[in-house]
């Protein structure tokens, strides 16, 4: 399952990334394999999304979230 497929309130654990360029940026922001992510909310127009990860809130587009594979 991908991060972009989570429903609001659902929690997942990051398994791996499918895009090298994106993975570097995401890891810098605390998205690491093994880390818990929870989908907090979706922007009014359906995109981007906000997730809780590593103790803070991160917003990212669905396209970017789809490069994160969850366990």
């Amino acid at each position: 399952m991908k991060l972009s497929q989570l429903k609001i309130g659902q929690v997942g654990i990051i398994k791996e990334f499918t895009d090298l360029e994106m993975s570097v940026k995401l890891m810098e922001m605390g998205c690491l394999p093994g880390e818990c992510v929870k989908l907090e909310r979706i922007a009014p127009m359906g995109d981007p999304i906000a997730v809780s990860v590593a103790g803070y809130q991160l917003s990212l587009r669905k396209l970017e979230a789809s490069t994160i594979e969850l366990i």
Binding site: A50, L60, E64
Partner: peptide, 9 residues
Amino acid sequence: GYFIMELPV
């Protein structure tokens, strides 16, 4: 373009 951004409390 991308949009990876912290939402501060």
